[in-house]
Design a protein around this nucleic acid. Structure first.
Length: 401
DNA sequence: TAGGCCATCTGGTCCT
DNA sequence: AGGACCAGATGGCCTA
C-alpha cells in the first residue's frame, strides 16, 4: 500500500513519552514547518512516496516532534486531513514495527533508511530525555508497553477476521447485484453487465416503468428501450439491444454516450412533461449515476392501463426472481420495496418485452395487443394484459413475477 | 500494451 | 471494544 509507510511514520502517540518533548525538538519542528511553508507545499500535496534529504529530514523531524505537543493553533496546519490529528497516535516504533511485520519486504529503501534513522534517534532521545536540565531524572508517567507477541498475534487475528467479514460483506453485495442483474431487462449468464451498468440499467428500468404507469397509456416501445439505454455505455447498449433483438443502429449515440434517436422522441411525444424532460431518467445530465438526481415525480396510479412485461432475456426464458427481491412499486406516488412477498405472488403475470421465438410466444400471440410500428421493425411484440388490474395488489403481483 | 473491471486488503470513521 | 461501512491502494484478468 502506497501510503502506508507515510501514515505509519506520521502516527505518533500522545501518551507515554510523547508528552515530554524538548524545546530543541519543538524548535526543530517549527523550522521544518517553516521549510514546508517556504516551499509553498501543503501537507495534502506531500508525495506518498518521496525520497530526498529535505523530505526525509522534515518527515523524521515532524514525527519526532509529535505535533500534539504543540499548541493547537500552531499544530493545526499539521492536523489537516491525513496529517496527524486524524490519525491514531501510536508511537512510532510500534507502528513501524507493525508495518514491518505486515510488509517485511518493504521495497522502498528510502523509507527503510528513514525508519532506521528514526529508531536510532528514538533511542538517543530516550537516553537524552531521561534527565532534565538539572541532570535529575525526569518523572514520567507509566510508559506504554510495546505490544508483545501475543498482542501482535491478536491484532493479526482481528485483522484477518475483519478481512473475512469484509469479503463476506462484498459477496453479499455482489449477490444482491446479481439479483438485480436478473431482474433488469438484459440478463445473460455469459455476458454479465458490469456493476455500474447494472445499476444504471436498473435505474432506467425503474424510470421507464414508472413513466409507463404514470402515463396510463401504451408505451412507445422504441422510446421505452431508448429510456433503458440512457447513459449506458455503447457495449451495454448493444448488449441490451441484442437482448431485445434490436438493431443497435436504431440508436444514435452522441459523443456523451447519450442515446439519441434520429427523430423526435416518440416517448417524449407520448408523455409530455411540462417543465421537465420526460425522456430522461433522473440523473442523466452527466451520463452516470448521480446522487443529485431529481426526485421521482409523485405519480398517481391511473388504473387505466396496466402493462406488464415479460422478461425479455432469451436466455433466462422466464423472469428470474429469487423470491426475495421485488421491483420497486409505485403506489399513489410512493415507491416502496417489498421483500417478503411469496414467490407465487402475481402468478401468471408477465412483464417485459417478449422475445420473438422464445418459448411461450405462441401462447401469448393471441393476446398480443401492441405491435411496434413497422419502421422500427422490431422482431418482437410488446404484450399488455387485456384486462384491467382489479386492485393494487394485482398490480404488484404482475411485477413480482 | 493500455484501460476497464474486479476482488481483496487495509485503515479510518461511525455506531452500538 | 467490536462490527459495519466506506474508500484508497494494489494486483490480476480480460479485451480491444
Amino acid at each position: 500500500m502506497g501510503t502506508r509507510g507515510w501514515h505509519e511514520c506520521h502516527s505518533s502517540k500522545r501518551e507515554g513519552r510523547g508528552e515530554q518533548i524538548s524545546a530543541r525538538r519543538r524548535e526543530e519542528a517549527a523550522q521544518v514547518l517553516a521549510l514546508f511553508q517556504s516551499r509553498g507545499l501543503q501537507e495534502k500535496k506531500l508525495p506518498q512516496r518521496f525520497s530526498g534529504d529535505i523530505w526525509d529530514h522534515a518527515r523524521c523531524t515532524l514525527t519526532r516532534a509529535n505535533m500534539l505537543t504543540l499548541p493547537f493553533e500552531e499544530s493545526r496546519v499539521m492536523c489537516e486531513p491525513r496529517f496527524g490529528a486524524n490519525y491514531p497516535r501510536e508511537s512510532l516504533p510500534e507502528s513501524l514495527e507493525q508495518g514491518r511485520q505486515r510488509n517485511p519486504e518493504r521495497s522502498n529503501p528510502d523509507m527503510r533508511e528513514v525508519e532506521d534513522d528514526i529508531s536510532e534517534r528514538e533511542e538517543e532521545d530516550d537516553r537524552e530525555d531521561d534527565q532534565d536540565e538539572d541532570g535529575l531524572p525526569k518523572k514520567r508517567g507509566p510508559r506504554k508497553k510495546k505490544p508483545g507477541k501475543e498482542q501482535n498475534d491478536r491484532a493479526k487475528l482481528r485483522r484477518q477476521e475483519a478481512n473475512a467479514r469484509e469479503r463476506s460483506r462484498m459477496h453479499g453485495l455482489n449477490a444482491a447485484l446479481e439479483s438485480l442483474r436478473k431482474v433488469v431487462p438484459c440478463y445473460s449468464k455469459t455476458q454479465k453487465l458490469s456493476k455500474i451498468e447494472t445499476l444504471r440499467l436498473a435505474k432506467n428500468y425503474i424510470w421507464a416503468l414508472s413513466e409507463t404507469l404514470s402515463a396510463g397509456k401504451r408505451p412507445d416501445l422504441l422510446a421505452f428501450v431508448q429510456t433503458l439505454c440512457k447513459g449506458l455505455s455503447q457495449p451495454t447498449t448493444n448488449l441490451v439491444a441484442g437482448c431485445l433483438q434490436l438493431n443497435a443502429r436504431n440508436f444514435l449515440t452522441d459523443h456523451n454516450g447519450e442515446v439519441m434517436f434520429s427523430s423526435r422522441s416518440t416517448y417524449e411525444a407520448m408523455y409530455p412533461y411540462p417543465g421537465s424532460d420526460m425522456s430522461s431518467p433522473p440523473g442523466h445530465s452527466g451520463g452516470g449515476l448521480d446522487t443529485g438526481a431529481k426526485p421521482f415525480r409523485h405519480y398517481g396510479y391511473s388504473g387505466a392501463y396496466e402493462p406488464y412485461f415479460e422478461n425479455p432475456s432469451p436466455e433466462s426464458g422466464s423472469p428470474h426472481f429469487d423470491g426475495q427481491m421485488s421491483p420497486p412499486m409505485n403506489f399513489n406516488g410512493i415507491f416502496s420495496l417489498k421483500h417478503d412477498e411469496p414467490p407465487e405472488y402475481g402468478k401468471g403475470g408477465h412483464y417485459g418485452v417478449r422475445y420473438c421465438g422464445a418459448p411461450g410466444r405462441a401462447a401469448l400471440a393471441h393476446n398480443s395487443m401492441y405491435r411496434v410500428s413497422p419502421e422500427a421493425r422490431f422482431p418482437y411484440d410488446l404484450h399488455v394484459r387485456s384486462q384491467s388490474f382489479q386492485a393494487q395488489g394485482e398490480v404488484n403481483g404482475s411485477f413480482h413475477n
